[in-house]
Design a binder for these strands. Sequence first.
DNA 1: TATGAATGAGGATTCATTCAT
DNA 2: GATGAATGAATCCTCATTCAT
Lengths: 188, 188, 188, 188
Amino acid sequence: MNEERLDRLFNETLKLISEQGFYSTPMSQIAKKSGISMGSIYNQFENKEILLNELYKKIKIRFANHVLSKINGTESIEQQIKHMLGSIFYYYSEQRSEINFIEQYENSPLITEETQKQLQPYLMRVFQKFEEGKRKKVISQLPTEALIAMSFGAVSSLAKMYVKKIYSSRMPDTISDVIDAVYLMIKG
Amino acid sequence: MNEERLDRLFNETLKLISEQGFYSTPMSQIAKKSGISMGSIYNQFENKEILLNELYKKIKIRFANHVLSKINGTESIEQQIKHMLGSIFYYYSEQRSEINFIEQYENSPLITEETQKQLQPYLMRVFQKFEEGKRKKVISQLPTEALIAMSFGAVSSLAKMYVKKIYSSRMPDTISDVIDAVYLMIKG
Amino acid sequence: MNEERLDRLFNETLKLISEQGFYSTPMSQIAKKSGISMGSIYNQFENKEILLNELYKKIKIRFANHVLSKINGTESIEQQIKHMLGSIFYYYSEQRSEINFIEQYENSPLITEETQKQLQPYLMRVFQKFEEGKRKKVISQLPTEALIAMSFGAVSSLAKMYVKKIYSSRMPDTISDVIDAVYLMIKG
Amino acid sequence: MNEERLDRLFNETLKLISEQGFYSTPMSQIAKKSGISMGSIYNQFENKEILLNELYKKIKIRFANHVLSKINGTESIEQQIKHMLGSIFYYYSEQRSEINFIEQYENSPLITEETQKQLQPYLMRVFQKFEEGKRKKVISQLPTEALIAMSFGAVSSLAKMYVKKIYSSRMPDTISDVIDAVYLMIKG
DNA sequence: TATGAATGAGGATTCATTCAT
DNA sequence: GATGAATGAATCCTCATTCAT
């Protein structure tokens, strides 16, 4: 299957599943929407579960790269971490299909230890950045994983709430305030 | 259906679904495990979706009550909020089936605006407590929903990570440190 | 599933498969013809393979009982064996569906050692009858299994050929001659 | 398609089907194992059924020639017939794949009258040999087809039983005894 | 009200066959 | 000729739901 077809398959699958859920999206519908026959899909992916797993990895890596793109600079650690948090917020707010898919998948029995492990390398650079911050004493000495979980969890929850409009629409004005607050938490 | 049977039904459903997921848990299995016939289940709940929705509400309310039980005291706002955060951490760490079910449900197409609204009253008291903090200037003036989302998001992410053992097992020692850090974030 | 329905299912399955073969007979057709829904069939039999296996055992036992019914008498060993051979000939000639099914099954990868073993007890009495003949010196001292295989193989081949009409239709006249000939073989 | 490729195709097909059965052996697997592309197979054989039919005829003829090779001699009719029976026994015992394929095919709905007729010429010489025996009064006056069916059926059943090891392993010692016994049957 | 056998629409998957290269 | 990716009809099987007892 050439790249163009594969892309189409992934994109349509993502769209359908984020709208309808895994189990309300039959393979036949994926085939129809993407214009790829079921036979070809099964030629490429052993079964539905594997298709979804591959899609998950692809999207998760794309997300990781988006966040990582903010930590290449020569800025201060504080600026780099705040940029990361900002791009997480952005991704959660804007890339609704991707985030919806990721959260469905991560809370389903489909996810495996194995898959999680395969994605670890992509998180390594984030990890190292926080460790660097700890060494330089610009952030708290709490366990690194804790700092990452707390800050990423805070920002993503915020963004999800924002999108759900439970919280009307004043958010954009306060994003940088909010990220400053989150940074206070990890600064200690 | 008497209360004892209903409880049994809910408990077994929760257990099965948290282990296998919604779509890998047939009604027939629920009937068998709970010792309630399928006829009786359908007599009580129009269909599977409604059964799950009722179970979701029941569990979510139980969770809310657990957290709310911490804000009845005469302690300082800070103490009360820290207790809430602590009980969220506890719940996420210990009540695995409940949390797993909740997260599956909230990330599935089964959840509806309607259901979310029905649960709003239970969050009202949390909301009021944060508002009180803002009035008394002991916490930040950021939007209340933002403060709640950030702090609850930080603690729950932390707890989930802790459980997954990505973060080995030193966590219990640092829970209060971590909660202190989260409080810094909302204190502003 | 009550006995009447089960009988209907077995009979229609037998008929369809002997006409069309295993793999050209979908479960849906079996369901339709027998008037039993697919759900009910799968409620009773885990899968198609198991349904066919059960049918095979049932038919094979019926066949065995038909043959065994001839060796209860007080006649001479020779008479009893000749009667058995006659009833094999009859069965192969008349019960076309049963024989066709049995031969399809025994030459397919569906048959298992296990199934063969389960049917052994039904052949025991035949075995003992031949052993008795050997003890009484009325038949050859060749291995008992060989005597059975040879004589049953001869008669069944004969019957199959007869049915296929390769051999026109004079057979009925000579059945007893033929059985006498077969008996010569085992008499030694 | 050159002869070498065709041979490879037939051999691999035979092997696969004798191990897995017709319907558990996809064309794609045959293509892969034989190293012949599906396109080439379909270029040579209109469809799967025709491929199998051609293979059947090829194997059946090979078997027939093996048996016929025993009746060219100048030996007595008795010796020639016994040699044929011996070679049938040998073939059934040793050429497991071929025999398995033949029996699967002959008991499936794939076999046609037409195919059977095409193979008749190969049996003609066997037929004539038995007729000669009848004329010379060295064997029974039963219908020739009956004599052939009985004797071939007896020997092949014996060999199949022997292979299945139901009958442990003493057989080789007694083959000639057994063939003598079979000859008694046709001698009358 | 409780039961659970019966139903059949719906979905995942397979595989013979085609055809553009 | 040779290739093998692409096709989609056909099949097995599942499971939410019903209803006679």
